[in-house]
Amino acid sequence: MGTYLIKRFFLMLLTLLGMSVIIFVMLRLMPGNIVDIMFDSAGFVDPLEKAEIEKELGLDRPIPVQYFDWIWGLMHWDLGFSYVSEMPAAEELGPRIPITAKLAIMALGFSVLFGVPLGVISAVKQDTALDYTLRVISLSGLSLPSFWLALLILMFSVAVFNDIPIYMEPPENLLDELLLFSIPAAAVGFRSSALIMRLTRSSMLEVLRQDYIRTARAKGASENSVNYSHALKNAFLPVTTIIGIEAAFLIGGLIITETVFNIPGVAHFLVEAILMRDYPIVQNLVMLIALIVVTVNFIVDLTYGALDPRIKYGS
């Protein structure tokens, strides 16, 4: 197990290093830089003034120098300055990360809490009216884009309640925060919940036909015990994989949801930073996302061992 953990740790480091090179190079391959964008808001471009600003921002230095400068800074927890606000990048990112993290956790929680039980019910009640209804709901979840669903929620809210559930001010307490994030979390988690539900259903259907389930029933175990203790535990393995992958995909949904619900998180901020070619913000944020994704996948891999005793690492 120890060897496996060390190997995985170094693999994670290697992945992150590769990501840092890719994001650094790709950003610079995009046409235009922050200075072009600065001049865009002034309605003209002056080549001399442009060169001066590029020099001021260090953009005139060779690309490898800029890269190592960034990595050196990262190692010393110096994330650089935002080109747009001229503020330290850490100050820009710091307050936004918890907002997106909370929203992501709530969205993932929503998708698991809805997806898994409904998937189990759908499997247990196979080919009944309830099963068909749940399958229609899950299909709609997969086919509705989250931005469209989010806008629909806003329009409905304004038309019916003459109110709009968007972020205007930081919430004063935990309850306010939960209420504020619940609708966006549901909007972004709906798609994942649909996917989890469909996978749980098919996985459950497969497991429910296994011999040991028949044995459990023959031993007189209750339906709930059979479904949740015996079947679900084994059916959950592929679902865990999907939850891990969905956690990474959530960031895409969050970009749209944060924009529509006006939530000042890092997902929306990342898109704005890309549009503005705010390299320090984009580089550091993408690295953070990469770190989260590799960590979540690492945790998912470790969870397999806990869920399935047949899986052993490093032996």
Binding site: S157, D163, I166, T259, F261
Partner: peptide, 16 residues
Amino acid sequence: IIKSRSTRVLAFIAGK
């Protein structure tokens, strides 16, 4: 600051 035009117009209509 509200980047989404639909959101900001709906928010104005809702009296925010």
